[in-house]
Computed example of a mutant assay.
Amino acid sequence: MEQPSSAASATPTPSETVLTPQEMGYLKALGNKPDVSGMITFNPGDIEEGHAICGQSSESDDEDGWSEGAFSGPPTVDAIIENEWDGADYQAAVEHLCPKYLSVLRKAKGGFTDGTYEVGKDIKAGTYRTTPGRITDCYWERSTAGGATIANDFVKNAPGGVTVTLMRRGEGFTSEGCGNWMRG
């Protein structure tokens, strides 16, 4: 009498993983190309990272620490700016896996956080405003290439945020305690 074989349950390999059309689009946007049979070889962590970017991670904490704050929820303007997620991988995740956040990604593009910048090199000229929320104890300064102050302000309390226009290439901009800035 023949005994039934007991096949061990194994973790699916990337070639056995069933992907949604959105996940396929995401992987292709990351540069993964299908082979002649139409199969895409990929790192399963790429899919998890893409979902984590969109706040869809099923893991509470993974080896890379994605859930430790960086990807702890849906994309926000502040999270994108603070983590400089304007790269192709972040764009691909939002476009393919959570397109409802495209407007958030657009708002964050070109934004920056507190620091010292050169207009035309680090940031573009234009009008910037702090991301939504009350601003307290914020100092900003526009300066010439030689370091002379063009304009500055210490904002004690701005419930509606702060707006600054950066006009010239080579102009300096410094921000301390203001948080994140987005175009607009």
Rank of each mutant, 00 (worst) to 15 (best):
E141R: 12
G45E: 08
S72C: 09
G146T: 03
A88F: 04
D122V: 07
P74V: 13
I80C: 02
E171R: 11
D61G: 15
A145I: 00
G38N: 04
L97R: 12
R106W: 00
T113C: 05
F154K: 12
G146E: 02
S15L: 12
P99N: 11
K109F: 06
A92W: 05
D122H: 10
P159Q: 12
G73K: 14
R106L: 09
C98V: 11
D114V: 05
T163R: 07
P159H: 08
A29R: 05
G147F: 00
E16F: 06
G69F: 06
H96Y: 14
P34G: 07
L97G: 07
Q91G: 07
G111T: 02
V162A: 11
E49N: 08
F154A: 08
E141P: 01
G45N: 11
E63L: 13
D86C: 04
Y90G: 10
G172Q: 12
S15N: 11
D153V: 03
E176S: 13
F71H: 15
G120L: 08
S58Y: 07
T144Q: 02
T17F: 06
P4D: 12
A10R: 15
R129I: 01
F112P: 01
L27H: 06
A79D: 13
A125D: 01
E171Y: 06
Q91N: 12
P44W: 05
R142Q: 05
K124T: 04
P74T: 10
D62K: 10
L30D: 02
T20I: 04
F173E: 06
G170L: 06
Q3S: 08
E2R: 11
V164R: 05
D114C: 08
P132Q: 09
R106M: 10
S5M: 11
F42D: 05
I135Y: 01
D35P: 01
T17D: 03
R169T: 14
T11D: 14
T116A: 13
Y101F: 15
S57C: 09
G111M: 02
G31N: 03
R169N: 13
Y117D: 02
G50Q: 02
C98A: 11
G50K: 02
D122M: 09
M1N: 08
G50L: 03
Y139T: 14
Q22E: 14
M167C: 00
G65V: 01
D64A: 13
T17L: 13
G87E: 06
P12V: 14
E82N: 11
K33C: 01
D86A: 10
A8F: 14
E49G: 10
Y139K: 12
D61F: 14
E59T: 14
C54E: 02
G65Y: 04
E49R: 15
A7C: 08
G110W: 05
L166V: 03
A29C: 03
C54N: 06
L19F: 04
L105G: 04
K107I: 12
S143P: 00
G50C: 06
E176I: 09
N157F: 14
T127A: 08
G69Y: 12
P21S: 07
G73N: 10
Q56F: 11
L19D: 01
D137N: 15
A88C: 02
P14L: 08
V18Q: 13
G133P: 03
I80W: 00
G170H: 07
E68L: 09
G120F: 10
E63G: 02
Q22N: 10
E59Y: 14
C54V: 05
N32F: 08
K28F: 05
D89A: 15
D64K: 09
A70H: 02
I40D: 03
Y101N: 10
A7V: 15
